[in-house]
Design a protein around this nucleic acid. Structure first.
Lengths: 341, 341
DNA sequence: TTGAAAGCGCTAACAA
DNA sequence: TTGTTAGCGCTTTCAA
C-alpha cells in the first residue's frame, strides 16, 4: 500500500510551504494566498488523495471532533439503537463521531469510562440511560461539556432530555375517553421506575378531570412483561364490574392483556379496547389488531442531546442548562373502539 | 477547574525528566530507573492525578487504541445492541474503544465512514451488518486490519464471522423429529436473504435424511413478519393433510403462526408444535407458551470479531483470514410436544 | 503573498 | 541510571 500522504507531501508537490497548504485546505479566514497558488495546492491535494490526520490536528487544536457516549446498557433494550442512531446522525452531520462506552450500570465503570474519554480529549459527552431515570454525572466530566439523555441528573447544572411520559399518557387515556369509555382500567408496573409514576398519575388525572371512576379495583400491578400484563389483566377482567378499556403501562403488558382478553372470549377492540405505551414495534405492530400506543421518542432525544451538546461545545456563551421534555406522539392503530351498547 | 496536568508537571514535581516519567508510567521493558526514583514518580503522578493524553500518545506511537465500527443500520434491529455490546466488551477489556459509524446501508456513506475512520487513525475496523449478508469492504480500509461481522465479504482475504444458520436449523428440526413428528411444515421468507436459504436447506436436509415427506405442500412463503407468519401458517393449516409441527423461519413468523393455530382451535404444543429461529426474546419469551427456537449468537460474534481484529493488530505474523461459523444454540421452551395419537 | 518555526503532549533513541 | 532531544502531523504566529 502507498504510504500515507502528509501535508508535507502536498506542500512539496505544489511547491509551497505546509503553512500555505494548511491555510487553503482549511479555508482560513483572511489568509491571503494567490488564487493561482490556491488552485495548485488544491490540485496537489486532490492528486495525492490527501486526507488530513485528525489526531495530529486534534493535538494541535485541542478539538478532536469526537463525542463520548456513555450508556448504562445497550444490549438488553431495543430502544438503544434508536437513541444511538439519533445521536449518531446529529453528530455525523457536522463531522463529529461517537466514541461509545458502556458501563453495564456499574458506578465504578462509569468513572473509568469518563476518565477514558477525557484522556481521549473528547469535545463533549452524552450520559445516556436506557430507561428514564435519575443519574449521577461522573465528576471526571466536570471539565467538559456534557448532557444527560433519557435521564435526569440528580444534581448539577446540566442539560437533559427525557420523554414527556405524563403528556403521552394523557393522550392515550384521552383517546380512550374520546372513544366513549367510562370504565377504564390501568395495568401498571409493580416496581417504581419514573415512567410508571408519571403514566399512572396521568391516568388518574384524566379520569378525575372527566368525572370518571378511578377506584383501586381498576388498577392492577404486576411485572412489566407480557406475563405480568396477562396476570394483571386477568385481575381486572375477573372483577365484578370489569373495565371496557385498559390502558397498559407498556406494550409488553398490553401483549399479555390481549391474551387474557382472548381467554375471556373478548374481541379487541369490539369487546375490549386496549392501549399501550412505548411503541415497541416488534410488538405493537405485530400483534393483531395493531396496538394504539404512545411512542417513546428515542431518536429525537438522541438528536436533541447531541445538538444541545454541540451548541455548548461551539458557543462561548455561558451555558444555561435546559431540561427538555420530548413529546411522546400517539400512534393510532386498531385496538380502540367505542364500548359496546 | 484545575488545568490539565501534563507529563511535564509530573516530571517537575518528581524532580526528574519527562523521559523517566514516561518510562516508569508505561512500565517500559528494560528501562533502568532506580526503585527510589520510580516511587517518587508514581507518587507525583498519583498526587497530581495525572492521566496521559491519549491523543498525543497516539500521534507519537501511531496507535490510537480505537477500533472503528461501521454498521449498516442500528436503529431498526434489536440485534444491534448485542453485537455492539460484544464488540465493546472485548475491546474494552484490553483498553480499546469503539468509534461508531452508521451508514444506513448506503455505499457512498460507507466510503465516507471508512475515510473518516482512517483519518482518525483507528487501529482497525469492524464492518458489521445487522443481517447475515454479503458485503463489499470499502477500499479505504485496505491499509488497516479489518474484519467482517455477521457478513461475508464478496472478495478479499478478510476474516469474517457469521451465524451457523444451517447447523441451528438442523438442531431445531431435529428437535421436532425427536419429539416424534413426521409431517413437519416450514414457513419461510419469500425474499432471498442468506439465512432463508440456509434454514430452508437444513429443513429439507433433515426431512430427507429421515425419510420424511417434504413436498411443496409443506412449505409456505410470505413476508418475514408476524402477519406473514399468520398467513403462511393458515395456508399450511388449511391444507388437506396439515403438518403436526411447523418450523418457522423466524420468531416473528412464529408469533403469527401462534395466532393462526388459535383460530384453528389448535393448542400449542398439544395439538401443534411450533419452533422458531432468532430467539428475539421480546417475542420468544413473551408469547405463551414460550417458543423453542435457535438463538442468533450476536454477542459472541461481536466478541469474536474484535478479538480476531485485535490479534491482527498486535501480531506481526501475516494474517491468514478465517471464516468463522458461530453456533446457534437451541433454546428449549414449551412450544414442542409429541404429536397427538 | 508566502515561508519558517514553535509547539500541542507524548515516546524513544541517544548521550551523558 | 537519568536527561536531552527529535520527531509524530498539524495549525498558527511571526517574520520576510
Amino acid at each position: 500500500m502507498a504510504r500515507k500522504v502528509r501535508i508535507k507531501d502536498v506542500a512539496e508537490r505544489a511547491g509551497v510551504s505546509v503553512a500555505s497548504v494548511s491555510f487553503v485546505l482549511n479555508n482560513v479566514e483572511g489568509a491571503r494566498v494567490a488564487p493561482e497558488t490556491r488552485e495548485r495546492i488544491k490540485a496537489a491535494a486532490r492528486e495525492l488523495g490527501y486526507q488530513p490526520n485528525t489526531v495530529a490536528r486534534g493535538l494541535r487544536t485541542q478539538r478532536t471532533h469526537m463525542i463520548g457516549f456513555i450508556s448504562d446498557e445497550i444490549a438488553t433494550t431495543p430502544f438503544a439503537g434508536q437513541m444511538i442512531q439519533g445521536a449518531h446522525d446529529a453528530a455525523h452531520k457536522v463531522g463529529y463521531l461517537l466514541l461509545m462506552l458502556n458501563t453495564g450500570g456499574d458506578v465504578e465503570e462509569q468513572h473509568l469510562a469518563a476518565r477514558a474519554l477525557v484522556q481521549r480529549q473528547i469535545d463533549g459527552a452524552i450520559v445516556a440511560t436506557m430507561y428514564h431515570q435519575r443519574i449521577e454525572i461522573p465528576e471526571e466530566l466536570a471539565g467538559i461539556p456534557h448532557v444527560a439523555l433519557d435521564a435526569e441528573p440528580v444534581s448539577g447544572a446540566v442539560s437533559s432530555v427525557v420523554p414527556d411520559e405524563f403528556g403521552g399518557a394523557v393522550a392515550v387515556v384521552s383517546e380512550l375517553i374520546t372513544a366513549g369509555h367510562r370504565r377504564i382500567g390501568h395495568i401498571t408496573d409493580r416496581d417504581w421506575p419514573i415512567a410508571k409514576g408519571l403514566r399512572l398519575d396521568a391516568y388518574r388525572h384524566c379520569l378525575l378531570s372527566n368525572d370518571l371512576p378511578a377506584g383501586d379495583s381498576l388498577v392492577a400491578a404486576d411485572e412489566p412483561s407480557s406475563h405480568g400484563g396477562y396476570r394483571a389483566a386477568q385481575v381486572l377482567l375477573n372483577a365484578a364490574n370489569p373495565p371496557t378499556a385498559i390502558f397498559c403501562y407498556n406494550d409488553r403488558m398490553a401483549m399479555g392483556a390481549y391474551r387474557a382478553a382472548a381467554e375471556h372470549g373478548l374481541r379487541i377492540p369490539q369487546d375490549l379496547s386496549i392501549a399501550g405505551y412505548d411503541d415497541q414495534q416488534l410488538i405493537s405492530d405485530a400483534i393483531a389488531p395493531g396496538l394504539t400506543t404512545a411512542a417513546l421518542p428515542h431518536y429525537d432525544m438522541g438528536v436533541w442531546a447531541v445538538e444541545t451538546l454541540l451548541h455548548q461545545i461551539t458557543s462561548t456563551a455561558p451555558v444555561v442548562p435546559q431540561r427538555h421534555l420530548m413529546p411522546c406522539p400517539l400512534i393510532r392503530r386498531h385496538s380502540i373502539a367505542p364500548p359496546r351498547g
